[in-house]
């Protein structure tokens, strides 16, 4: 049965490759174990895993469409792209790479996530990731996430236990713009627009205040600019960010920390910037 399926799918792809028309892949609970290049439209149903020996290069303008399936009935779509090998998604400003929902009326958590787990290479540049549970999750690897847009997700960008640079991105209209558990991460989060989310930054737990989160715009988030999780008892310092104001009381009013729950740590916001950050200048401007 599976052999028949493979042959059928191969037959469908051959003319596309030979004629030079826009290629299209439809992957259902598949594994990738070789070097592949994706372009055109790639549809994913279920879990597609890029194994350790696999390497996926996604070309500018490619559209990755996750079909909405909820096999376990938890209200969260089960289609996902899990990367244990390498994934290099380098779009351009003119032709970004799109990760999106295949639903007729898309909504947050239609699909699960783009998930890097012990990945060998993790590069996202000029991508748009939308309508997922997490626009991207990165764990136990080195990663760069740059010049991208994460919108209409539960978590825009989420990481723990990583070496990561998150720069020049827009995290907008998510439940949490950025969600992280530091857990020994070497993280530099700078020159990002984190706005119009319910929560700008959610520091869930295990932060020892080592992550650098500076030169970001943290404005117009509906409930809080920054929130500490129930188990985050140590202070978190976010220097040199633009909060929409330099007034300490106004900044504090947008933060859930020890001022609201005495068992939590404090969020410290030294040296607030006096104006918005131009996020496109992340290559030129040094992060303090």
């Amino acid at each position: 049965m599976r052999r028949s399926f493979v042959i059928l799918l191969l037959g469908a792809l051959l003319p596309a490759g030979c004629l030079g028309t826009k290629p299209s892949l439809h992957l259902v609970d598949a594994v990738v174990e070789a070097d592949v290049v994706w372009q055109g439209e790639v549809r994913i149903r279920g879990v597609v895993t890029v194994k350790k020996q696999g390497r996926v290069v996604i070309l500018p303008g490619t559209k990755i469409v996750f079909e909405p399936v909820d096999r376990d009935g938890d209200g969260i779509g089960d289609s996902e792209l899990l990367v244990e090998g390498a994934l290099l998604a380098r779009g351009t400003a003119e032709a970004p790479i799109l990760f999106t929902s295949g639903a007729a009326e898309p909504k947050p958590q239609d699909w699960k996530y783009l998930y890097f787990d012990f990945a060998k290479e993790a590069v996202l540049e000029h991508v748009v990731s939308e309508y997922a549970y997490s626009g991207v999750q990165v764990h136990f690897c080195r990663a760069t996430v740059r010049d991208s847009v994460f919108r209409y997700n539960v978590d825009g960008v989420r990481f723990s236990t990583v070496n990561i640079e998150v720069a020049g991105n827009r995290m907008i209209h998510n439940t949490h713009g950025l969600r992280y558990e530091e857990r020994g991460s070497v993280a530099s989060v700078h020159h990002n627009d984190i706005r119009n989310n319910d929560i700008g930054i959610f520091a869930v737990t295990r932060s020892k205040d080592k992550a650098t989160i500076a030169r970001n715009n943290l404005v117009d988030n509906r409930n809080y600019s920054v929130k500490l999780g129930i188990e985050q008892r140590e202070d978190v310092t976010l220097p040199y960010n633009w909060w929409g104001t330099t007034d300490g009381e106004q900044i504090a009013a947008g933060i859930l920390d020890r001022r609201i729950d005495p068992q939590l740590g404090r969020v410290l916001t030294p040296a607030p910037l006096t104006g918005p950050v131009d996020i496109s200048r992340w290559r030129e401007e040094k992060v303090p």
């Binding site: 191969l10 070097d35 290049v37 372009q39 895993t49 899990l82």
Partner: peptide
Amino acid sequence: YLTRFFCGSLALLLALSIGVPHGSACVGKT
């Protein structure tokens, strides 16, 4: 690119026969 795409697609198609991957966590339990 098209050649690489085709080769890649073929490799991927062959890989399809290997098996179904695990469902991963970190959305967490609902």
